[in-house]
Amino acid sequence: MLKSDRFLAYALILPVVAAVLAFVVGPTYNVATLSLTQVVMGQERGFGTLNNFRALWADPVFGLVLKNTAIWILGGTLLCVSVGLGVGAYLAIDSKVTGWLRALILLPWVLPDVVTAMAWKWMLHGQVGIIGQTLESTGLTEGTISFMGDPKLVMWMLVVVLVWRKMPLVALILCAAIRAVPDDQVEAARMDGANAVERFRFVTLPNIAFSLTAVTVISMIWITAEFALPWIMTGGGPANASQIMATYIYQQSFEFFNWGVASAMSVINLVMLVSIVALYLYVNRRSWASEASK
């Protein structure tokens, strides 16, 4: 029984593992070897060099890229989850409005990146954008603001758009989790005289702790893979103020044809993120892995 189980199990997971090995791990391995290869004039010349990594180290833009990437991934994740938590708590309230909103809120998620990036870029533009014009005509700002042209604002505007795109799903997951909190616990807290904020803090939050950490990782994975949004909206500008790993990798490989360095950067990117997530998964192994460990 046990032995046949084992064979059955391997047979069942084989297609998934094979597909991931072939289409994901294979190309990744390719990138890893390329990062150790000298690429000159578009030709691969000689494996076994750290020149690509050295070049990155010497590149003054790379430091800025690391800083921006930290804002993008950490800031983006943090805002995604906290705004998602707020919206999720709101959606968990029973009413007609929230019912509709629960369905409509997914709209940002279903439109392709290409479209949302273009639409936001257009709306945020200082001279032809509806947002600037509305702010000005309602007297909230004096003159319009060039959101995407100001190096101090641009990274945060990108995060706002990112949150817009990724937050709805986070909110729905957390909404579902909040609604699953046992009523008797909430009721008991109310009896004890806890107000709404206290009930949320001491009853709801502990109950949804796992979901919170789960969506944190999911958001982080999403945001890492996100490329079209920043690339279409700013192309890394102005003055590299919104240059992040994803866009810089793209620029190095396809604009500069410098794919040795691009690969080195991908490897660094991957190692950093995988270690964060692997650590997370290890710490939380009880909740996602075998039920035997329960």
């Binding site: 189980d5 893979a225 490329f227 998964l281």
Partner: peptide, 23 residues
């Protein structure tokens, strides 16, 4: 089902989600 390497493989699959993007 119980099989050796189960959690490791599942974790590996999840992490592979991050292997995406322009590169």
């Amino acid at each position: 089902l119980n099989f050796p390497g189960r959690d490791l493989i599942l974790g590996g699959l999840l992490i592979s989600r991050m292997f995406q993007g322009a590169a």
